[in-house]
Design a protein around this nucleic acid. Structure first.
Length: 549
RNA sequence: UUUCCUGUGGUGCAAUGGUAGCACGUCUGAUUUUGGUUCAGAAAAUCUUGGUUCGAAUCCAUGCAGGAAAACCA
């Protein structure tokens, strides 16, 4: 409790604001645009906004920033809600910027009446040309001096559908020479004869982000409007509208967005991967989307822990994927049952084994407090073992099977390799061993010590499954920073499908949401593509492997 | 060559004028019926140059580096 964890800069601001009595309660919001699926970068913002109000008291609204009807869909609204709740957060009010279209329109009229906005008939190209550049001031045009009455009339006509798309815009009258280009008379309303996912055809003019976001915050009395660094330059405008409109002074604060190695984070690029079928969909287990991570087998706890560990600051950052992997391993190590599956099988025959119907007992998770219970594992004379657990000519420090070498079969007996068989291609197909009856797991009186333990599945009892192994989506740490098209750097080996994997019978009961550790192979979960006769497992993440062969 | 933001181990985050710390990663070693887990340890950083100060990662100045800013996108 008293463990003083250092505060990030936003927490410091908040503590000061609360202490000084500036606000009595914290109100934040998470404001996605419903034009794509949420990703791990959004998770950072979600954890921040909801986490802050959980910590300091107050609440967080979910507000969809739906001011551009042409890109927004209800499908995205639904997926975004599901993802936020799956992460473990609940919003106080569910709101839409489109709820405020009437109010926003009134604000625009108010600005016109204060001679702080005007209707501009220029084309997009003309406006861009007049805007200047970062190093040269912009120049005003003739429309800037229209009368208030004329502007009111024109704006009403815009609203009433008298003009086609692009005919004119409403602009704030600020300063065409401002060093901040966003202050050079920004467009605040544009004409779009488009169907809106919520307001339908009620409107044909829609407010721009800058004329909707801050005012929406203000209407909701958001105290701390937290966004990413690309909005720093917008803050001046944000404050200007609130001041001129004389409304509740919400304040904007910016933090650095998350970048993760070996992936891309922009919605545009993720959409491209989906549209061009380079991945199976928004929830492809290789995607950094929340739905992708969920399908991959990540837990909400592990993602929240990750967001906690990466911290909040204002510098550009590139987080190593290994940290995300650490977080899910840490979580699953405590939760996942240890089971056996053989991914790349060869046969092991115990030549001196005469047993019949022997059943062994496996402890499900020695790392869990209650050990996770136990289960029965059928044993037999013939087993499937991993191809890579046998070496014809063992490397130095090799702990596993090799001619003459001994190894423990997990939960079972110690065996010694006596012989092996190869096919015509020189591939090992069978390993022949003898076992030591007195070496049975749990009641070993053999006195034999072995360094290696390997997993196995009885050939007579094995079920088959498909296993999908995933690797990083891109071959380079920062696809965005590379020359050329980011898609040139897709990892062709990012998914490997193993269609005949042998699993122990216990796993036949696995259901969606279940996560397992396949002993020595990694953590796996059941994929939604599974059918009654063919379970499909996704590899969430491999185990750490310190073997350097 | 304008304005704004940012510079701390490989990576991320701390230290708020007083011993540069934590985590991931890397490397040792111990333990281990998972080459997992756990445990012990190691290497590794304040962008430059000045200044203020008894004392600077922190304050000031300069330079340098990176990022952002010119969608009727958000």
């Amino acid at each position: 409790m008293s463990e003083e964890k250092s505060l990030n800069f936003i927490e410091e601001l908040i503590e000061n604001d609360l202490k000084s009595g500036k606000y009595e309660m914290l109100v934040t919001r998470f404001p996605p645009e419903p034009n794509g699926y949420l990703h791990i970068g959004h998770a950072k913002a979600i954890c921040l906004n909801f986490g802050l109000t959980q910590k300091y008291g107050g609440y967080t609204n979910l507000r969809f920033d739906d001011t551009n009807p042409v890109t927004e869909k209800t499908e995205y609204v639904n997926s975004q809600q599901e993802d936020i709740q799956w992460l473990g957060f609940q919003w106080k009010n569910e709101l839409f910027a489109s709820d405020y279209f009437g109010q926003l329109h009134a604000y625009a009229v108010k600005l016109i009446e204060k001679n702080l906005a005007y209707v501009d008939d220029s084309t997009a190209e003309e406006i861009a040309a007049q805007k200047g550049t970062p190093t040269e001031p912009g120049v005003p045009n003739q429309y800037r001096e229209r009368s208030i009455a004329e502007n009111l009339d024109l704006f009403a006509k815009m609203k009433n559908g008298a003009f086609p798309d692009g005919a004119c815009t409403l602009r704030a009258k600020i300063d065409m020479a401002s060093p901040n280009m966003l202050m050079r008379d920004p467009i605040i309303y544009r004409i779009k004869h488009a169907h809106h996912h919520r307001t339908g055809d009620t409107w044909c003019i829609y407010p721009m982000y800058d004329f909707a976001h801050g005012q929406s915050d203000s209407i909701e009395q958001i105290t701390h409007s937290i966004c990413t660094l690309e909005y720093v330059a917008h803050r001046e405008l944000y404050d200007w509208f609130i001041e001129k409109l004389e409304i509740f002074p919400s304040k904007q604060y910016e933090f650095a967005r998350l970048n993760l190695t070996y992936t891309v984070m922009s919605k545009r690029k993720l959409l491209q991967l989906v549209n061009e079928k380079l991945v199976s969909g928004w929830d492809d287990p290789r995607m950094p989307t929340i739905s992708g991570l969920r399908r991959r087998g990540y837990t909400p706890e592990s993602i929240r822990e990750f967001c906690e560990r990466i911290g909040i600051a204002k510098r550009e950052n590139l987080i190593e994927l290994s940290l995300l992997e650490f977080c899910i391993r840490e979580d699953l190590n405590k939760k996942a049952s240890r089971v056996m599956a053989v991914l790349d099988p060869i046969k092991l025959v115990i030549t001196n084994y005469e047993g019949d119907g022997e059943v062994l007992i496996g402890e499900n998770n020695p790392e869990a407090e209650d050990k996770g219970g136990t289960r029965e594992i059928p044993f037999g004379r013939e087993l499937w073992i991993e191809r890579e657990d046998f070496m014809e000519e063992p490397a130095k420090k090799w702990f596993r099977l090799a001619p003459g070498a001994m190894v423990r079969l997990k939960f079972a007996y110690i065996v010694k390799c006596d012989n092996f068989i190869k096919d015509e291609h020189g591939n090992v197909t069978e390993v022949h061993c003898s076992y030591f009856p007195e070496s049975k797991s749990g009641s070993d009186t053999s006195g034999i010590n072995v360094k290696g333990t390997i997993h196995w599945v009885s050939t007579a009892h094995a079920k088959t499954a498909e296993v999908r192994l995933y690797d990083r989506l891109f071959t380079v740490e920062s696809p965005d920073a590379e020359e050329g098209d980011f898609k040139d750097y897709l990892n062709p080996g990012s998914m490997q499908v193993l269609d005949k994997v042998y699993i122990e019978p216990y796993l036949a009961t696995a259901s969606l949401e279940n996560r397992y550790q396949f002993i020595r192979k990694g953590y796996f979960c059941v994929d939604k593509d599974s059918t009654a006769d063919k379970p499909i497992f996704n590899r969430v993440v491999s185990l750490k492997d310190s073997w350097k062969g």
